[in-house]
Amino acid sequence: MTATIALLAELVGFDTTSSRSNLALVGRVADRLDGIGARVRLSHDEGRGKANILASFGPCAPGGVVLSGHTDTVPVDDQSWSSDPFRLSERDGKLHGRGAVDMKGFIAACLAAAESFAATDLARPVHIALSYDEEVGCLGVPGLIADLLAHEERPELAIIGEPTLMRLGDRHRGFLGFRTRFEGKAAHSSDPSAGASAIYPAADFAGFLRAVGHRAGAIDRTTVNLGRIEGGSAINIVPSACELLWEFRPVTPEDAEETERLVGAYLARATPPDIRQSTRRQVHVPPLASAGTEPALAVAAALGGIGPPFAMPFGTEAGFFQAAGISAVVCGPGSIAQAHQPDEWIACAQLEAADAFMARLAGWACRRHS
């Protein structure tokens, strides 16, 4: 575990907040993995300021496993930390630092195990796949999966190491984020009839979203949330524009289609003729579905993942792998309760459990028969 902690300290030292480039971390990790014999590929965003890493060990053959994590973190702005968030510190068996649990702890365990992957006669490949911009909508992982499928044989399964306390997460809702804009006509407020207020139809739409999405049972039902409204310029001007940022979290792809149909039908019938309306999807994270018989679930359980499988309240990149025909499960060290918090931490005992999981995975990958 000493090697994993040392690697975690190095990873935390890179400020990879989603608003910043991750290339310094990517370069360091890619050099390390290339140096021990991995087949390393980088795939960049359009501006080439960020990159995914794909590092493959073993034969170029089907039936492998993907260890998936993301390199970006949420900001530390407006959070009160007891220590430097970009310097790993240990207190009472807890390792504190931004990204320590979400999810550089899992990445450190993967990197620590990489030497054993390189030194073992693997019968099936092991892929370490690290993406950018997960925290702002899983923007990097589609390109990472495309790169994987274009240059390696299709893996059998993917293990996404989001913090679950090493429990087996086999399902979660998706996430779709939208921006809806209403545009009217500005006028002096002494004669509102000379203009067309964009705020009134926006307010009506907000009420519609609340009626559709104000429900209980958040994990197993589609929910809707309005996160932000912005419009108008002054108290004495009829507002010419108003924007709403809203999202919904579907349980299944069919739920997603139905919710988008309901919203589209409402906007078509309820938008006044003197108002222009546009709605643009900005984020799409697919749900992770489970029938309880996925290969990834069985393998992760055999490697030490803790059952019974559970439904996660948060989204992950797992649905992208499943949509690409790769069986996926979520299982990683640490608790999601510590993620995104000031003084974020991961327990040393959780890293030890992740190391044991990786050691078993190396043994599984070198066996000729499952």
Rank of each mutant, 00 (worst) to 15 (best):
I145F: 02
A359C: 10
I275R: 02
D343A: 09
R41S: 11
T17E: 13
K104T: 01
F182L: 06
L122T: 01
C331A: 11
D355F: 09
D255E: 13
S116H: 11
A51L: 08
S21G: 09
V330P: 01
A108M: 05
F86K: 06
N225P: 07
G143T: 06
A301M: 02
I235K: 12
P342H: 04
C331V: 12
T120K: 07
A38G: 07
Q341F: 00
P155N: 03
P308W: 07
L245K: 12
I145P: 00
R91P: 04
D133G: 06
L7N: 08
P287N: 03
R39V: 13
E46K: 14
R28V: 07
E153K: 15
R87D: 03
P286R: 00
A324G: 04
A109T: 12
I346V: 13
P272I: 06
S278V: 14
E156W: 05
A354N: 05
F321C: 03
H284Y: 14
D255M: 04
G177R: 12
A291Q: 13
G213D: 04
I346Q: 00
F178P: 02
I159D: 01
R171V: 07
G13E: 08
R98V: 00
G307N: 01
A158S: 12
D343C: 10
G363D: 15
E90V: 14
R41G: 08
C138T: 09
H172K: 03
A196Q: 03
V126F: 04
A218M: 14
A216L: 13
I237F: 05
P201M: 07
L42G: 08
T164S: 06
I219F: 13
G217K: 05
G93N: 10
D220F: 11
E156K: 10
A300N: 05
P85H: 00
P313L: 03
S193L: 11
S83P: 02
I53R: 01
A123F: 09
G213P: 09
G363Y: 10
D72I: 07
A202E: 03
P239K: 05
C110L: 09
E254M: 11
I53Q: 02
A318Q: 01
G227R: 04
L130I: 11
D31W: 02
G161M: 02
P125A: 06
D220C: 10
V141C: 05
Q79R: 04
P201L: 08
W345N: 12
G195W: 00
V76C: 14
A296F: 09
T2D: 15
A186D: 04
